[in-house]
Design a protein around this nucleic acid. Structure first.
Lengths: 204, 204
DNA sequence: GCCACTTTTAATCATTTGATTAAAAGTTTT
DNA sequence: AAAACTTTTAATCAAATGATTAAAAGTGGC
């Protein structure tokens, strides 16, 4: 039953603005986004944006934190599961991460760029990476291969998974990859990355 | 001997502007850069920028093309050398590319972001990627491992090399990596990437 | 030293942009 | 239905920004 209003709208004005902001910020980045773009996308008056969120920057921070969480959030539970093997973690991480990214292909480049463009704002606010470094996954890795710097391995795994999505615009603009072609490659990659990452574990 | 002037300045006004533009665009990206930032960085009048380059956009395109060339230019001669083995190419590509990137760590994220933000402008203008796909390296790879999609392998190699530099701001802002720490890791990685990429070639 | 040409400067424009304001419309409480 | 509060709108502001202009300063040829 409705809480306050006679007729509670299925989507509030506040949520409409956020949704538009998610879309426009992700597409154009903070600097190139005009508050008017967001208002127009939401089909609302520009002043409403400031009424609900005070400023472009405040709205951006909300969206940005969501995106960071989305980008790394999938990994934490997988890499911290005490009941799975190292190999299984690699499989799950690759498959699930790639799956999520296929639905949000712009996510990695967006997050990396915006942190790059305004590092101070996010200093210390990103626990995701530290969470990975202290994960059960890293413990298992240290045990199996004490000679390998875990950060090198994690960066390589993340690179295998994230980099194709970061390079996507370049590959496509170079004309060497169609939208369909990219999709099917990423589907293949779900199986390929685990095979290749496990091969790294066997190097002597 | 000088061509025109009595005293040819060791650095021309035009080059001063370009140099400032390289620095500011690379640091802040196109959208966040003000033409005044560039003029100030160059220690020159704002109008001079338009006198020499007509517009912010024209100046940017010049800088951007330089950066794309710098980012991929190292690879072309290495991957197209008919006299080296597949393994040697991997070694040289990794070592030289990482070496260059250690001196230009912002390059990958800058290029990827700007192409992302304005794909139309660069459509077809990037032959670098196509050059890699038709390289001697890819031919050798097809011969050795006809079962591997070369693009998967190239993306993985590029990811191993470029991704650490793309993730650098995140890693550093997460507080998990100092400037010194990053430097020494990248030095290690020059040797590590070849070992690991060769391991991929041996997967069955 | 004068003339044509290039380079540089200071001042100014027209637009764009993030934000505010004051009033109108809508809703809830009494 | 009157009062109190919230939400929405249209109009407007001040600052920032890319670009232009007209005049000044500098340079080389004669």
């Amino acid at each position: 039953m409705p809480k306050k209003k006679t007729v509670e709208p299925d989507i509030t004005t506040e949520e409409k603005i956020k949704e538009a902001a998610r879309k426009v910020f992700l597409q154009k980045g903070y600097a190139a986004t005009r508050t008017r773009d967001i208002a127009e996308e939401a089909g609302l008056n520009l002043a409403l944006l400031n009424y609900y969120f005070r400023s472009k920057e405040k709205l951006f921070e909300i969206v940005m934190m969501e995106k960071v969480q989305k980008l790394f959030g999938v990994l934490a539970p997988i890499l911290n599961d005490n009941s799975t093997s190292l190999e299984k973690k690699i499989e799950l991480a690759a498959t699930n991460h790639i799956g999520m990214l296929m639905e949000n292909p712009d996510l990695p480049l967006f997050v990396m760029s915006e942190i790059r463009n305004n590092p101070e704002r996010f200093a210390g606010k990103i626990q995701a990476v530290k969470l990975i470094q202290e994960s059960h996954f890293v413990k298992q890795l240290k045990e199996k291969r004490p000679d390998i710097n875990p950060l090198h391995f994690v960066i390589s795994l993340l690179g295998m998974v994230l980099f194709p999505f970061i390079a996507k615009p370049v590959l496509q603009e170079a004309g060497s990859l169609s939208v369909k072609g990219f999709q099917s490659m990423m589907e293949e990659r779900k199986a390929l990355v685990p095979i290749w990452m496990k091969a790294l574990l066997k190097t002597r």
